[in-house]
Write a protein that binds this DNA or RNA. Sequence first.
DNA 1: CACGGGTTTAGAATTAGTCTAAGCATAGAT
DNA 2: ATCTATGCTTAGACTAATTCTAAACCCGTG
Lengths: 138, 138
Amino acid sequence: MNRDFAGLLKEHGVQPSAQRAAVASYVLTTAEHPTAETVWSRVKKHFPMISRATVYNTLNLLTRKGLLRQFVLVDGKTVFDANVGNHHHFIDKKTGRIYDIPWDALEVSRLESLGRFEVSDYHVVVRGRLKSSARRRG
Amino acid sequence: MNRDFAGLLKEHGVQPSAQRAAVASYVLTTAEHPTAETVWSRVKKHFPMISRATVYNTLNLLTRKGLLRQFVLVDGKTVFDANVGNHHHFIDKKTGRIYDIPWDALEVSRLESLGRFEVSDYHVVVRGRLKSSARRRG
DNA sequence: CACGGGTTTAGAATTAGTCTAAGCATAGAT
DNA sequence: ATCTATGCTTAGACTAATTCTAAACCCGTG
């Protein structure tokens, strides 16, 4: 868990800094699909002086460099997802929480037949509710 | 094209008014997946006094009444879609424009095997580019 | 130590969307 | 035609999310 985030950033063409490492160390290891504000508040606990602009800048930078993916959830908030591999999403209608669905759990067929649309990527957004039993964080 | 929008609204339990009919006549007949701001600017051409709040109120009302669907596109803007039947979406990476993909054009399988996720609806978001030939508005 | 490039900062600006309070419009009763 | 209750519309204030700006900072190099 205490990885060398400075080295990781450098590997991905991001010039490291204390602030960037602090953001990375949180956002690349969480599974909670945080918003930018959530990232800011979490990082501030360990790095109280960091500014909002730096958090936004860093998140956008990490996204450009492929370390992070961002997508938009139902009520217009952008969330960040360190799972940059292909996967689908499940949105709990009740809580708005987002869960990852493994890529292989679903199959989409006939993508080759989309006529004038040239597909570069796709994912399935599933909405519904969690079965009462197996509730946990995601 | 010059349908009786007042009657249509009434059929769906929306008390008609000139403003609501003006919004409906645009948003229910366009295929451009407009944002609320776009709706406002389009409607203002024919109805210059309409206020922003009325546009938002009407769009949300039409959505609640099932005449319209809203979803969120990549950069955090909510767009409206008069196609309330099931369909998928294609997003042109270059222009950000959204196109509808007919429901039957794609097939998603293994949705029954999602464990703790109880599916109520789903759709596929495809991203890519339009093949250079068949470019047209959507 | 001075320089320069890139980074960070606080706060201003922008943007999307909602709220508010007052004015208006309309249907139904008279 | 008038009254009234209800609900609709309005302009502008407000809020929240995000980006921009301009100054300050940091750090490796000469």
